[in-house]
């Protein structure tokens, strides 16, 4: 079995709202996969179905070879979920919390080692209530990786972080990826997806509207370049030629010259606009 996750024709409806409209997806083992998409696009619903939190209406889903619609304890011990909004266990210390949760797993990591891995050794005796938002998310990660999971879900892990905390957190996630675990994350931040993910799927209107490596997503690598200078701008497939021509015209330096390709954000905004019409 090469795929950690395999999805065919997944649908889910809430009342009148068709939240997920037929998603096909393969996530390979060892891959870092990011779901991008606006709120209400079906991103969370899809991930929660994969996590075994939510029942699907139709489609075939296999996560680590098991149907998440019928989660077993054995299966749960093989996946790790890092929640977005948890605010629990405030009165326990970091160490107490991690030790307690380690007891749920048949082969847990050493709790102190898990605390060290998320950089909380110095705060291990602090109550969870006293931690900053970023530290708290680190506790969530420690709990998520306690069972030595083959697959880790991270739901918007850096929402509300300051830039420095985000960078540090990215390093933490990169470290997890190096252990060989498959990582599935959802995020609003395009730079986060670009920095961490091997592959990205953009969900909009309950469908995957684009899927691929961040560098080539939505035809990004082949899109026209934009050449701008003080007295004009042009979209072209051959920016080098344009710049050479300009250089000749200005006899050297071109005033205010810039050559840009569409950013992931440009591509993303175009992608999520389309299905809303």
């Amino acid at each position: 079995m090469t795929n950690a996750i395999q999805v065919r024709g997944l649908t889910k409806r809430y009342g009148d709202v068709q939240a997920v409209k037929g998603i096909d997806l393969d996530i390979r083992r060892g891959e870092v996969f990011a779901f991008l998409g606006p709120n209400g696009a079906g991103k969370s619903t899809t991930v929660e179905i994969l996590e075994g939190y939510r029942k699907r209406d139709a489609g075939e889903v296999s996560v680590l070879g098991v149907d998440p619609g019928r989660p077993t304890r054995e299966w749960r011990s093989r996946i790790g979920i890092v929640l977005q909004t948890a605010n629990d266990a405030a009165e326990l210390s970091v160490r107490e919390t991690v030790r307690h949760f380690a007891g749920y797993y048949p082969n847990p990591r050493d709790p102190d080692e898990a605390i060290a891995a998320v950089g909380l050794t110095e705060s291990a005796n602090k109550r969870v209530r006293q931690l900053s938002g970023g530290q708290r998310r680190r506790v969530d990660v420690a709990l998520g990786v306690l069972g030595n999971p083959e697959l880790i879900f991270l739901d918007e892990p850096t929402t509300g972080f300051d830039p420095e905390a985000r960078r540090q957190f990215w390093e933490l996630i990169e470290g997890l990826a190096h252990t060989g675990s498959t990582i599935v994350l959802t995020t609003h931040y395009l730079d986060e997806a670009e920095a961490l993910a091997n592959r990205v799927a953009v969900i909009a209107g309950g469908q995957i509207v684009a899927e691929g490596e961040p560098a080539t997503l939505g035809g990004r690598a082949t899109a026209k370049a934009h050449v701008i200078w003080d007295e004009g701008s042009v979209e072209t497939d051959t920016p080098t030629k344009t710049v050479l021509e300009l250089s000749r015209r200005y006899d050297g330096e071109v005033p205010g010259l810039a050559v840009t390709r569409p950013t992931l954000e440009d591509i993303y905004l175009k992608l999520i606009e389309a299905p809303r019409d």
Partner: peptide, 11 residues
């Protein structure tokens, strides 16, 4: 506060 959701996601 997420206690139940977190527990439901563990074995």
């Amino acid at each position: 506060d997420g206690t139940l959701k977190r527990l439901a996601g563990t074995p």
